[in-house]
Amino acid sequence: MRFASGTDRHPGLNIHGRDPDAHRAAEPVIFGFWIFLMSDLVLFALLMATYASMSLHGIAGGPTPRQAGDLASAGVETALLLASSFTFSLTSLALKYRDDRRALVGWMALTGLLGLGFLGCEAKDFASLIGKGWAPELSGFLSAHFTLLGTHFLHVACGLAWMAVMFVQIAVRGLDQAVATRIMRLALFWHLLDVVWIGIVTLVFLQGSLS
């Protein structure tokens, strides 16, 4: 064997202690997924650049970033997403150290609930903007605002759908190697969405309320 079983080989939590074979098989898969996430990050960066430009030049008589961003609700959303990122890291630890599935499923379910809460809050924000007549069709700035937040929203929703599939797979297939590496990939996805959210909060809400 070329690698000692104790070495980390990919981003995210490494499970070499629990299951060295799964660990080895996971390496290229997780590396590939990590590359995909980097590509996704570029997508978010470009949406943010577009947002930044349109929040200056695309107001067109409509609301300004300061009026459109609700700082209090952004705070709640941040707290929910951060907490869910933390509970997912507990999910990963359960995958690594615990032989019973209960802890794993429990933490992941809690993560899912927090994620749902996040989506609910954001949906309420969207609804309230539209309720004020500030729909994305009104101005370039609002288009950019809805699109940036909406893309993140969609990502989180996809993460939740993925989680749902994982619950089914754990039930049907058990925690076999393929399922374990999928949970590890989902973990990367989820954590990275929180990283993206830091950027969004800073650019859209904090910077916005200073404008």
Partner: peptide, 21 residues
Amino acid sequence: ALDRYLGFHFFTNGAGGDVMN
């Protein structure tokens, strides 16, 4: 596509769109 399908204003002439982007 968002402009064309949902009436957004990313690249339209008016309403704060920015064709140069």
